[in-house]
Structure formats: structure tokens, C-alpha cells
């Protein structure tokens, strides 16, 4: 579904990604793990068009997308929930969800039925429907950020650190939700600090170090791998 080959990204003179290649197949949950600065977010941001790669190719469903502007990439079916949630704090929960459906905002009936679907997925958001997003708790904001990304009707969902800064019991439920979303047919590319949890729900994983892929294995094997356990699972 998504194939990245030899992707190289610079921020000014600093190299963030050094010829990375990875692949996400239809229906999978693929996770990228690695330390801060390894290039996980940069990879995600290159896919969604927020960062322009210096070289390399990103192919989505057979078409190269690395030259497309970010809003076009959303239209062809890649949604992203960005790191740090970045909900529109000055707008209500409902308005945030509506913005997710920005490209089809004129189809009012369809949009409100999609919003109802989000409310069944995240009942907490229903209670907060008319509240401004800035007043939500961290966990609720994360749900809103994921819901907002799902409102773009993605076939591939990019999640950047969805569990960051959440209480442990919330982390559990966020991962449960990601699994549910995947079961409904959305392919997921997940970036996580919480490698343990991420590998438990993922099919495959990539380990990134300073802009390079150092390991690409099934999630099961990565969980068993001694180096990974030492470096990322804290054992």
C-alpha cells in the first residue's frame, strides 16, 4: 500500500533521514520505534507532505506522492494524528471533527453521520460535543485528534506518539482503540515511544536509529530480540 524507498530528509544542514526504506501493506499495523531524534516523526511528516524530502520516493497505492502538497495527500486517503495532538483549542469538539471532513463539508448529512460514528467510537467526545477543545483533558484531546484524522476517511492512518503524556490506564484504552480502528479496515502506521505496547498490537516493526532503519522484523520477533529488549523495552 505504501512503499518508501531511499528517503533522505534534511532540515537545513542537518540530516534527519538517511536513505530510509520501509513498507506498509494493506490491513497491517506497522510500528516505528526508536529513540528521540531517530527520525520517526520526520518519516511520518514526509509521508503527509509537511516535510519535503531531498531525495527518495514515497509511493502510495502505486502513485508517487512526495511532490504533492499536504492537502492533496489528505484527499487521496492518508490521515494523520500529529505529535502533541494539536487540536484546535479555540473551537468546539464538534467543529474540530467537522474540520476533519473539510474537503466534503458541503455534504452535511454525510458529515454528521460520520461525526456520530466518531461518538460511538469515543463516547467521551459525545459528552464534550459543545465544549471547546482546549478544555479537554490530555486523553480526550488525543481521542479528538484521532477522531479528527479519521474524519478525513483515511485508508492509511498515521499516528504520531498517540500515548505521549497520557495516564497509564488511558494508554491501554488508546491502544485498544487503535486495534479497533485497524479491524474496521484502516491500515495504521504507528510511531511510539512506548515500544512495548506498540509491538504488542503491531504486525511488523521497524527500529530506527539516527535516521537509519537498523532492524525490520515481525513485531513478535522484535519483542523477543535481546538488543531491542535492552534498548527500548527497558529490560
Amino acid at each position: 500500500m505504501l512503499t518508501i524507498s531511499n528517503l533522505t530528509v534534511f532540515y537545513g544542514a542537518i540530516q534527519a533521514l538517511d536513505s530510509i526504506s520501509l513498507e506498509v501493506n494493506q490491513g497491517e499495523i506497522v510500528t516505528m520505534i526508536g529513540a528521540n531524534g531517530a527520525g520517526k516523526s520526520t518519516t511520518i511528516r514526509s509521508i503527509s507532505g509537511l516535510v519535503r524530502p531531498r531525495s527518495g520516493e514515497i509511493i502510495f497505492e502505486g502513485k508517487p506522492i512526495q511532490e504533492l502538497p499536504a492537502h492533496e495527500i489528505v484527499k487521496i486517503g492518508i490521515g494523520q494524528s500529529p505529535e502533541g495532538r494539536r487540536v484546535f483549542a479555540n473551537m468546539t469538539v464538534r467543529e474540530n471533527l467537522e474540520l476533519g471532513a473539510y474537503t466534503r463539508l458541503q455534504k452535511k448529512v454525510e458529515v454528521s453521520s460520520d461525526i456520530e460514528k466518531m461518538f460511538t467510537l469515543f463516547p467521551r467526545l459525545k459528552e464534550r460535543e459543545r465544549q471547546s477543545a482546549g478544555t479537554l483533558s490530555g486523553g480526550e484531546q488525543q481521542m479528538l485528534a484521532i477522531g479528527r484524522a479519521l474524519m478525513t476517511r483515511p485508508r492509511l492512518l498515521l499516528l504520531d506518539e498517540p500515548s505521549l503524556g497520557l495516564a497509564p490506564f488511558l494508554v491501554q484504552s488508546i491502544f485498544q482503540i487503535i486495534r479497533d480502528i485497524n479491524r474496521q479496515g484502516v491500515t495504521v502506521l504507528l510511531v511510539e515511544q512506548n515500544a512495548n505496547q506498540a509491538l504488542r498490537i503491531a504486525n511488523r516493526g521497524y527500529v530506527l536509529e539516527t535516521g537509519n532503519v537498523v532492524l525490520a522484523e515481525s513485531a513478535e520477533n522484535l519483542l523477543k530480540n535481546d538488543d531491542v529488549r535492552k534498548a527500548y523495552l527497558g529490560e
Binding site: L50, A70, H71, V74, P82, M91, E95, E98
Partner: peptide
């Protein structure tokens, strides 16, 4: 209006607005 909502989104966070499919 639709462009009005997009304007408010952009003024709050232009990158997040792009991720909503808004042609900024």
C-alpha cells in the same frame, strides 16, 4: 462559512490545518 472555518483553523495551527485537507 467553509473558508471562514478554515481561516480560524489556520490561524490556530497552520500545519494541523493542512492535515485536515485545507488548501492553506
Amino acid at each position: 462559512t467553509k473558508p471562514g472555518k478554515a481561516m480560524r483553523a489556520i490561524s490556530y495551527d497552520i500545519e494541523a490545518a493542512k492535515l485536515m485537507g485545507i488548501d492553506t
